[in-house]
Amino acid sequence: MRIISQLMAIPGVIAAGEYAYRGDRYSFEGNITNELARMASILCRSNTLAVNMQAEIFSAFSENCGCKPVQGWIVHGKMMSVCVVGNFFCFCQNTPGLLNDVMTILRAKVGDIEENPLVYMYAKLGGDVNEKLY
């Protein structure tokens, strides 16, 4: 299943999309118009470029500071959040558990989580997760 479709399957996700680092190509699903998806893509791309530039500056102060390369960013609003990892964005409501689930899926698909996201999520409960799950 595509990442965007996976995200959209989670209750509380308003819209999700993918943008190109260069150029103006994008794709999306959700409750926004094509024009708004285009704007969201531009907004997310420019913010991603900004945080990458900031990480470059951090590394000038501390070479192995652990921030580079940046995976993404989150804006946490009053009732909505915008999550970006790599070149994927997701607009979601601030319902309990949703932000962590969205970030786990994004990091598993385009970020740093290498194992199965289910294992990662359940690992926080402790114990032998693989034994319990499989």
Binding site: K68, V70, I74, M103
Partner: peptide
Amino acid sequence: EARGWEALTGQTGFEPVQGFSLVGLDW
């Protein structure tokens, strides 16, 4: 951006921004 987005789209809930997270490689 949140203020502009809310004004343009009519969607609400982004403002006031409560926080921000920069997701680095290790932290």
